[in-house]
């Protein structure tokens, strides 16, 4: 029930959203500018900077690394995360609170600290190859997403369905794959997508774990911004925004955005 008094509130809200989204719109517009420096509004339009992404050394190769690390890291996080999330929501046991906190802790510990300690131990002390180190680091930051989203899906899950399947003769494992997993499928996919974005955009870990020939796209972008100030980054940003929007579309379909407000 809105009345005139709420109009002020509405105007304030729309202003907030203009500030929130305006900069992103500006990026989109500058990415089509023809000038070799960032100007707004652009004097003439061109797709040159999109072309430049593909011609500049490093963007494509780091993009491939980013995709690979995010996907495989995601897989690792799922493999170790799903059983843990299941155990945490299904069973009551001693130390549950502590273990739950431990699995969520990669979200609480400053990313930059996590990155540094991983460089110090995983790369230097454990002598892991950089590529593997990246995978490990990204798996760790994706783990809380997997655990949290799946736990919340499982908390709405009626475990008597599982008992029903068991009583009908299905084995424990078959029950999980045929009954539990299909019922939390949307939560699972949302977890995969959210974790993917978190990993794909990650700077804090990746910035420490780079080496000759191994780097991720965000790190490459950071380095580019430090040296050049042209619309190439704007063009990449647009492509990344399209990716984000596409993934968000799926998340909305799967969970509804109300998921974000109910954490």
């Amino acid at each position: 029930m809105m009345n005139e008094k709420d109009r002020g509130l509405a105007i304030f809200t729309w202003l907030t959203f203009i500030v929130l989204l305006g900069p992103l719109v500006i990026i989109i517009i500058t990415s089509f500018g023809a000038d070799s420096y960032l100007s707004f509004p652009p004097k003439s339009l061109s797709l040159h900077w999109y072309q430049n992404i593909f011609e500049t050394e490093g963007f494509i190769s780091t993009f491939k690394t980013s995709i690979f690390v995010s996907l495989i890291g995601n897989l690792i996080a799922l493999i170790i995360g799903i059983p843990a999330a299941y155990a945490l929501s299904r069973y009551h046991f001693k130390g549950k609170g502590v273990l739950n906190a431990l699995f969520i802790s990669p979200l609480l510990i400053p990313g930059i600290v996590l990155g540094f300690t991983m460089l110090k131990y995983v790369i230097v002390t454990y002598h892991m190859p950089i590529y593997t180190g990246l995978l490990v680091g990204h798996s760790i930051i994706m783990l809380p997403f997997v655990i949290r989203v799946i736990s919340s899906s499982l908390s709405n899950f009626d475990f008597s369905i599982e008992e029903a399947a068991l009583s009908l003769g299905a084995g424990k494992l078959a029950t999980f794959f045929k009954v539990v997993l299909p019922n939390i499928r949307s939560g699972l996919i949302a977890a995969i997508l959210l974790a993917f974005l978190e990993s794909f955009n990650n700077v804090d870990i990746s910035i420490f774990i780079t080496g000759p020939g191994v780097s991720t796209l965000p790190i490459q972008m950071l380095q580019y911004v430090e040296n050049y100030f042209d619309p190439t980054i704007a063009a990449i940003s647009v492509l990344l925004m399209i990716l984000t929007a596409a993934l968000m579309f799926f998340i909305e379909r799967l969970m509804g955005f109300s998921y974000f407000t109910k954490k």
Partner: peptide, 24 residues
């Protein structure tokens, strides 16, 4: 739903992209 979506979108967008916009 639309407004929550519009609020979540920047949240899922790279911090580099968003900082870069303020550089412009």
């Amino acid at each position: 739903t639309i407004l929550i979506g519009l609020a979540v979108f920047p949240l899922l967008t790279s911090a580099i992209v968003r900082s870069f916009s303020w550089m412009i």
